[in-house]
Design a protein around this nucleic acid. Structure first.
Length: 221
DNA sequence: CCCTGATTCGC
DNA sequence: GCGAATCAGG
């Protein structure tokens, strides 16, 4: 997979938005986490806090009223003979810039989880057809769990090589998610779902009636 | 062990 | 330039 302008753009956006390299890699597809990191560095993207923040984002900062920290004068640092990295403090936060006008490819504002249809497209409900494109995100975007009822559920974006990818529910529905249990080593599913997915071929007369199909079986309406 | 980003280095 | 392998850390 090549680094097209679009993909690079997406990479920058996601990187600066605070997504992890893994998340970005999955988002882009066709690239590894390492590839993303490597590219990010080659692009000169500021290395964000490398002391990883695996769990949740650090909410730490108390909602301090507008009290911008004093501008550090930082005079000439006396670097003896240490190969101190010239890297200036990240200081991202591009500041809310006014959105041009129309034709704004704004999309990163979307919550990570949206209903993803079979083709990979994002579904729309009848009522929400291409209305006003959301203005630029006012504030830093955070991965975040979109809705309460999705809390704890494994979404498409959270799949990895070691968790069960057995789908629960129907794609496109609000609570569609994946099993998420640890996989049965060597298989894409957990033990339980492997037993459903892989059945030994039995003589006809001994066959059991229909095992539940993936995706929850035929739709019922 | 899981994860994170950083760095190296052969391609 | 690319990214797997490796390193270092939470």
């Amino acid at each position: 997979m090549a680094w097209t302008d679009e993909r690079i753009e997406q990479l920058k956006k996601l990187w600066e938005a605070g997504n992890t390299a893994s998340q970005i890699a999955e988002e882009l597809g066709g690239v590894s986490r390492n590839a993303v990191i490597g590219k990010a560095h080659r692009l000169g993207l500021q290395s964000r806090p490398s002391p990883v923040r695996s769990g949740e984002a650090a909410p730490a900062a108390p909602a301090e009223p507008a009290a911008p920290p004093p501008p550090a004068p930082t005079p000439a640092p006396v670097q003896a003979e240490r190969p101190a990295p010239p890297a200036p403090r990240p200081a991202p936060e591009p500041a809310p810039r006014p959105v041009p006008v129309a034709a704004a490819p704004a999309e990163p504002a979307q919550p990570a989880v949206r209903s993803i249809g079979p083709g990979g497209f994002q579904r729309q409900n009848p009522g929400e057809q291409q209305l006003p494109i959301p203005p630029a995100p006012p504030r830093r975007l955070v991965p975040a769990k979109p809705s309460a009822d999705m809390a704890g559920k494994t979404t498409l974006l959270e799949l990895s090589d070691r968790i069960c990818k057995w789908p629960i529910g129907h794609p496109g529905e609000p609570d569609f998610h994946f099993c998420g249990d640890p996989i049965n080593p060597g298989f894409p599913y957990c033990l339980e779902h492997c037993s459903v997915a892989y059945q030994a071929q039995l003589p006809r007369r001994d066959r059991r009636p229909p095992p539940p199909l993936p995706f929850g079986g035929p739709r019922v309406r």
